[in-house]
């Protein structure tokens, strides 16, 4: 292919010319191309960044009151994120350059107003500790939720059960994707099902990664009502009280 044959009409004439073959060596060309490909391959970013949409509550207090009043005491669950650190130290522990986070939760509404004192908080502290854990596959090959995911799942089981039913129908081919999405949306909005209202709070030391992780849990467990809120005095007191009792 890389050769051109020159034929001068059978060599009848006197000026008998030699048959010439012009071959072009393409090896350097290939070398160069390979280098260029390598360059572009390394420079390019194939994987696009993912995004997570969040909507914070408006700063106007009116909206907030309405929102919070909907959450009855037994539906509410508060999650507090904190960075793991050594007692007395402010520097978070890291593993492979990633901050290790701890997650605490409690049910119902915390004490508020005048009732918040060190003693009353210590007496009524129902704060519990959980962990961020990935699903573990059990003996039958079914993934089992662990840690905080299990706790959230437990609270939202009515919604998840309904969703699972529809998912099964979808897998059996009874309903199509659009229909499933519509049904799933209805389930998430269904007022008759018992749904938790999750309030997410975080200490300033916890990492941003933990926030994204907990928002992920909301998505995984189809939580429809959650909000990010500021730490209040009672939350800090509960956390300190818990840590004092357990980090001995």
């Amino acid at each position: 292919m890389a050769e051109v044959q020159q034929n001068d009409g059978g060599g009848k004439g006197k000026n008998h010319q030699k048959k010439m073959t012009i071959r072009v060596d393409f090896t350097p060309m290939v070398d160069m191309n390979m280098l260029l490909i390598t360059f572009f391959m390394l420079c390019t970013t194939m994987i696009k960044s993912q995004t997570l949409n969040i909507a914070l509550p408006s700063n106007e207090k009116v909206d907030n009151v309405e929102n919070m009043s909907q959450a009855s005491a037994d539906d509410a669950i508060t999650i507090i994120l904190d960075a793991k650190r050594k007692t007395g130290s402010m520097v978070p522990d890291t593993v492979n350059g990633k901050v290790v986070n701890e997650v605490y939760y409690f049910d119902g509404k915390p004490l508020n107003g005048e009732a918040v004192t060190n003693e009353s908080v210590a007496a009524n502290n129902n704060l519990q500790k959980a962990e961020f854990l990935a699903d573990e596959v059990n003996g039958q090959g079914i993934p089992q939720a662990r840690g905080i995911r299990k706790i959230i799942q437990e609270r939202n089981k009515e919604v998840l059960k309904k969703l699972e039913e529809y998912k099964k129908q979808f897998r059996d081919g009874k309903i199509d994707q659009a229909k499933y999405d519509e049904l799933a949306k209805q389930v998430r909005k269904d007022e008759n099902l018992k749904k938790p209202v999750i309030i997410i709070k975080s200490t300033p030391e916890a990492s941003y990664g933990a926030l994204v992780e907990i928002l992920d849990e909301m998505q995984i467990n189809s939580i429809s009502k959650y909000q990010i809120d500021n730490m209040e005095k009672v939350d800090s007191l509960m956390l300190i009280d818990y840590q004092n009792r357990h980090h001995k």
């Binding site: 914070l56 509550p57 408006s58 890291t94 901050v99 975080s202 030391e205 990492s207 941003y208 926030l211």
Partner: peptide, 21 residues
């Protein structure tokens, strides 16, 4: 991912103040 929540909170609070919720 290791940015402290305090730092992120400040940025988000700033946006919230000017109604970019």
């Amino acid at each position: 991912q290791n940015t402290s929540y305090g730092t992120m909170h400040r940025v988000m609070d700033n946006l919230q103040t000017i109604h970019m919720n």
